[in-house]
């Protein structure tokens, strides 16, 4: 979560809900992809063992699910500030330098996102040029999974660029504290807090039951 109680920049409530909405949509796409995959793979494994029938292609489906799921997950990890950064020495640096590093981190992450998306453009172009078809029983035209994968990478690049622009704006207007607050490395403490909140909810729910 980007905002905590007492955040200096509390002016962005609608932005938060938009962000949460995007997160929800992406999370459901991600989750149903893997639950569906798990179901298909389970059926394949059991039917192979029990009835000698092989659906042939569950492993192929697994590869495509990862291609789609991983790119969506990049964006979700970015929005949850989960792309790991080591924060031990960071905390010892002067505020100004911290701000610069925080800005540089998000900008470089955005640059990396754009780079990967750009690289993927070549993959797509080649696949179209060769009409590549998977060497599998399904003979899947490769462009199908790859275009979804590509869309995921472009979304990641866009989200990262959005964050980078915001950080740049904050840096340009010298709002150092806000910048440091919103973009500093996620500490173990914060990660833990999320876990504990969830646990507290679980136990509250347990207690509420008769």
């Amino acid at each position: 979560m980007l905002k905590e109680e007492g955040a200096p920049a509390a002016a962005s409530a609608p932005e938060t809900s938009v962000k949460e909405h995007i997160e929800n949509v992406l999370a459901w796409i991600f989750g149903t992809t893997f639950i569906a995959l798990a179901a298909v793979v389970t059926v394949e494994t059991l039917s192979r063992k029990l009835f000698n029938i092989s659906l042939q292609g569950a492993d192929e489906l697994g590869g495509y699910s990862l291609a789609v799921g991983s790119t969506i997950a990049f964006s979700l990890a970015l929005m949850g500030r989960n792309h790991i950064r080591v924060d031990v020495f960071h905390e010892m640096l002067p505020k100004g330098l911290q701000a610069f590093l925080n800005w540089f981190s998000i900008v470089s992450l955005a640059a990396f996102g754009i780079f990967v998306a750009w690289v993927a453009t070549k993959v797509i172009a080649d696949t179209m040029a060769y009409g590549s078809t998977a060497q599998t029983p399904w003979a899947t035209p490769l462009i199908w999974p790859q275009s979804v994968w590509y869309a995921g990478l472009v979304i990641f690049a866009l989200v990262a660029t959005g964050y980078a622009l915001r950080a740049t704006g904050l840096l340009a207007t010298r709002r150092i504290d806000t910048l440091n607050h919103d973009f500093h490395p996620k500490s173990a403490k914060e990660e833990l807090k999320e876990e504990l909140d969830d646990l507290a909810n679980r136990q509250a729910a347990e207690g509420a039951k008769p």
Binding site: H83, I84, R85, V86, D87, V88, F89, H90, L93, L101, N102, F104, S105, S108, L109, F112, P185
Partner: peptide, 8 residues
Amino acid sequence: LVGMPIAV
């Protein structure tokens, strides 16, 4: 160590 994202 200065806190850049590991992947980057």
